[in-house]
Nucleic acid binder design. Structure first.
Lengths: 146, 146
DNA sequence: GGCATATAGTTGTTTATGCAACTACATAAA
DNA sequence: TTTATGTAGTTGCATAAACAACTATATGCC
């Protein structure tokens, strides 16, 4: 699209991802303020486990768009914090299934509340229509690069 | 905005920043393929120095939305690669002014070409109108969190 | 069965980030 | 002039990312 050319200059800050990291940083701060001692990366893993427990590390890779070493280490740290447990699969001994501890289950309500508040803060003044279009753009970009 | 509520679930992957890091990762790969041995973070610093040389580290912090330690270390690494030089300011001895080496000047053309190609790839099928709105959303989010 | 190949997960290395604590210099007020 | 306060930059520490190389298990084909 050559007629996108003139707009690119302003988009380089998007490449370096600074709007999304601004939200991420704020969420991290709000977690801390609420007494929640987890990182947003750890939270993003828990988020998918709250939806469905007992996923394999590979499934968590796909869900969070991370590579395998990243998930290995995030699960390492979540295990150290006693928030998840690796359970070897009985059908396939290569696979670890990841389960939540009681502590992690208790984290869900409060942390989702903080996350929702943070998104409200960030999206204040943005209309639903604008959000829809922004999501479309993100999906298109993601598909283009897959 | 309580009527944004129902849309949030789909936005959490935006918090963890995966659309923009997809572009960043692709740009990194394209740099490598083109024989450019710099990281996108280093490139984002060079990008602002190509626009104006001799900026202080603090100015680079503001331009790239990074904190001071991050810029200290990016400049460290860029100095190791012999792409920039720290020059102490004569007016204010606290300040380092950052200048480009000949090698860094020569990097500009090729790396901007690769960056433009990458953005074309990523934004293929996205209309100018959609881009405008996405940028508005990013700016609003950024202002909300400042 | 035995071998090639694919898949799940781990480890090592380099680079980057966020935060807190620190040094050095500058400026303004007492 | 001294003292307080602010600003520029650095260092240490923990966490995370990308990439490559590795181990262990599973599967498909001869």
């Amino acid at each position: 699209m050559p007629n996108n050319q003139f707009k690119k200059g302003e988009l380089y800050s998007f490449i370096t991802g600074k709007a999304s990291t601004a939200i991420a940083r704020r969420l991290q701060k709000n977690f801390k303020q609420a007494g929640l001692d987890i990182t947003i990366e750890q939270w993003s893993v828990l988020y998918h486990l709250w939806k469905e427990e007992g996923q394999s590390q590979q499934q968590l890779c796909d869900a969070t768009f991370r590579d395998k070493p990243s998930i290995t280490r995030l699960v390492d740290n979540l295990e150290k914090l006693k928030l998840v447990k690796r359970v070897p699969s009985k059908e396939d001994r290569r696979i670890n299934l990841i389960y939540l501890t009681k502590e992690a289950v208790q984290l869900q309500e409060k942390s989702m509340e903080v996350a929702n508040q943070t998104l409200n803060e960030a999206l204040n003044g943005v209309t639903n229509g604008q959000i829809e279009i922004a999501k479309e753009v993100l999906h298109t970009v993601y598909d283009n690069l897959k």
